[in-house]
Design a binder for these strands. Structure first.
Lengths: 225, 225
DNA sequence: GCGTTTATTTGCGTATGCATTAAATCATGC
DNA sequence: GCATGATTTAATGCATACGCAAATAAACGC
């Protein structure tokens, strides 16, 4: 176990962590520009590690480096969300299929099952934050079970981008009371080793989620997040 | 048109370009370690832009930064190749489907058709390099037609990694005489607007290519590329 | 000899300063 | 009044320097 000893994070690592946090929290809002030197002084370090962090986050698609204009926090349009959801749909479905083929024991799948149960509880409590957390856990765990490190990396990256939008989208959408039935079906297919059903079910689930979300964004005229 | 005027590339951009080239050409071989300062002097610049380039390439999965051990050019195992092919399969199939839905004109699809014709010629000539180039073009164009910028970015990234292995794999595999029939079928489905067939056909094509390649690597005991 | 400690080397992370160059501002002519 | 070119401003890209920590070598005790 990790016994409390925190390894001293390097400044550039701190910068990555803190900048991500600032982006997710909205402290750095989408579309806003920031000079390297400003960020550096906010984070109490020199430009060098900030620059390195910014370079990495640019690779993650969270921001954009525009020489002499500053660092721009990338906004997400509905069509960006559509793109992201399409990628997530394909790769998570692959993960579901691979997970089903892996002959996992119930113990291996316990985290997945737990996430589903947590979502049920959250829905019963109408606790949107808890639901969002459990939903994250479900998808993270599903992808982990697929055991494709590239898929895991890409899905995490895309999920990060979605996470930013969640603050705005979470409270305008209806409680996803039905969606957990899909989750359970995916879970059972994996458990049963039925790769085709796992894949197909998850795929349809994700496609449905996409249309719901995109329609919602359009309806609320949320052009950018 | 771009009339010959080349904008002066920044040093870190040059570093990215040159390091990539050195990796693809094998000048920096898979598994080898290199100090930042060595690379810097090879590229005639200071450590700073090299470091920035390395950071970006690390995000692309081409190398790994191991403090005090140097920059490690990442080797690709057969299971890495399997992972990559799985991702490519899913995302390219998505692109094929989306392309079919886009109602492209023959003119829009001319590059795709051209790539297929080029492959035919290359196969007739037994020109493996020409075939590889045309094959690249086909896949690049297919994904471009899918019009999902994230898919394009990810596929390019994964293709880069495959490209490194091609030098080793190209000459041990049989001439892909049959594969072009698949390409044509995908093309025709896109042209006909038959998204399901385009998707399914390309998917099967890619899965087939994966098993061929992975088997070949195993058979030749190519543990790392 | 061999394991342990201490010295030395060396590569990295970061700070800093400067030259470059794009943007912004201003001046000038039409 | 507007456009165009000159001038100023300022953010960046990069080189350089330095301290720290890790790796290696050397010295030492057993």
């Amino acid at each position: 176990m990790n016994v409390g000893i925190e390894k001293p994070l390097s400044n550039s690592q701190r910068a990555v962590r803190d900048l991500r946090e600032m982006i997710f929290s909205g402290e750095l809002s989408a579309g806003s520009d920031h000079l390297e030197s400003e960020l550096a002084s906010q984070l109490n370090m020199s430009r060098t590690p900030v620059r390195e962090a910014v370079l990495m986050l640019e690779g993650q698609g969270l921001l954009e480096l525009r020489p002499r204009k500053g660092v721009r926090i990338l906004p997400l349009s509905p069509s960006d969300m559509a793109e992201i959801y399409d990628v997530l749909t394909e790769l998570e479905s692959l993960a579901a299929q691979d997970a089903a083929r892996a002959n996992y024991t119930d113990a291996d799948l316990s985290d997945l099952a737990q996430a589903i149960d947590d979502m049920d509880v959250a829905i019963a409590d109408s606790d949107l934050d808890a639901w969002a957390l459990a939903d994250d856990n479900f998808h993270t765990e599903l992808v982990r079970l697929g055991r494709n490190s590239r898929v895991i990396a890409i899905v995490n990256m895309m999920s990060d981008q979605v996470r930013r939008a969640r603050a705005s989208t979470l409270f305008i959408r209806p409680l996803p009371t039905k969606s957990n039935a899909d989750h359970r079906l995916v879970y059972q297919s994996i458990r049963a080793g039925d790769a085709e059903t796992a894949r197909k079910t998850h795929r349809e689930h994700r496609q449905h989620a996409k249309t719901i979300l995109v329609d919602l964004l359009e309806k609320h005229r949320l052009r950018f997040l």
